[in-house]
């Protein structure tokens, strides 16, 4: 079944690099033709800008409480003449400012977790696929162990013990992802191992490391990016779920997921702004990653494109 999963992802030949410009043009054209990916890219660009410049844009200190002004509605007057544009939360903190700061942490957690998981998974997959045999067995059994174990349980177990924290969260979410990458990379490596250009590199006397990382890896990057863009979405959702269970980031760190989790007691009291704004931020970001992922897959998979 692993081989089936990667079946739709075809790799491109190494000449690709020389055709980089042409490929890029083709990508832009395909993207514009599909319309939605452009919009998604714009959204993600905006999120990225907010993540980088959020602290400059935020009108107030995101952690500054003001319990006398708690649960203020959007546009209500804040402390010292400021305005709570998107309302204030249960401790009187400015929702807008937390949202802007939260962009950075949410994105950081999402992207870093993917990098951690992707890096471990890719290396494991490359090594397992290239060498095969005992090493392959060990990695794949490790993968089976992890998959036989609902990820959320593993995450809960480690976070209960290690305590909340951005780094812990990234590690746990990242480790939760590696098997997916490992399996796909392994399958790709298995087929690439026998390809002519790899044989050629071997014949030229390239070192094993060089073959794995210089010759094979570049050809696997495309399918990896597709999975990664889908994965960011699920990692952001997982962060929200862990926050709900009280295992997310520490309280002074705003993330969209934890903001949404904190809103749960306020929904029945009609404090809609606490859920709507972080919810919207999550939905838009996740949606954009999914759209980009869809487009990337179609773009990189000639078979599907033909049909288009």
């Amino acid at each position: 079944m692993t081989d089936m999963a990667s079946d739709g992802l075809t790799t491109l030949s190494p000449q690709r690099e020389s055709n980089f410009r042409r490929e890029l043009k083709r990508a832009v054209r395909s993207m514009v033709a599909a319309k939605w990916p452009v919009l998604a890219l714009v959204v993600l660009g905006a999120v990225l800008i907010v993540a980088i410049f959020g602290p400059l844009l935020a009108p107030l200190d995101p952690n500054r409480q003001n319990i006398m002004l708690r649960l203020a509605e959007p546009m209500a007057e804040g402390p010292r003449g400021a305005t709570f544009w998107l309302g204030s939360d249960a401790l009187g903190r400015d929702v807008l400012s937390r949202l802007l700061y939260g962009a950075r942490i949410s994105l950081l957690v999402g992207v870093c977790a993917i990098f951690v998981g992707g890096a471990i998974g890719t290396v494991a997959g490359l090594v397992a696929g290239y060498f095969g045999g005992r090493i392959d067995d060990v990695f794949m059994r490790l993968g089976d162990i992890q998959l036989a174990f609902p990820f959320i349980l593993l995450a809960i177990m480690f976070l209960v013990v290690l305590g909340p924290g951005v780094v812990n969260l990234i590690l746990v979410l990242g480790i939760g992802q590696w098997v997916t990458y490992a399996r796909i990379v392994r399958a790709q490596t298995l087929s690439l191992r026998e390809k002519e250009f790899v044989e050629a590199a071997r014949a030229l006397g390239d070192s094993t490391t060089s073959i794995i990382f210089r010759t094979i890896l570049p050809n696997i990057v495309a399918p990896l990016t597709v999975i990664a863009s889908f994965n960011v979405a699920s990692v952001i959702l997982a962060e929200a779920a862990l926050s709900f269970l009280g295992l997310g980031v520490p309280p002074e760190v705003p993330t969209w997921g934890s903001m949404l989790a904190e809103s749960r007691e306020q929904l029945i009291a009609n404090k809609w702004w606490l859920a709507v704004f972080p919810g919207l931020a999550i939905v838009l970001t996740v949606l954009s990653f999914n759209i980009i992922g869809d487009w990337l897959r179609d773009f990189l998979d000639p078979r599907l494109k033909e049909r288009g």
Binding site: A233, A240, A241, G257, L260, R264, I282, V286, L287, I291
Partner: peptide
């Protein structure tokens, strides 16, 4: 798309 972007606890509540 919406279903894939909304946290399940929120949907539940």
């Amino acid at each position: 798309m919406f279903g894939q972007s909304v946290p399940n606890f929120w949907l539940g509540i």
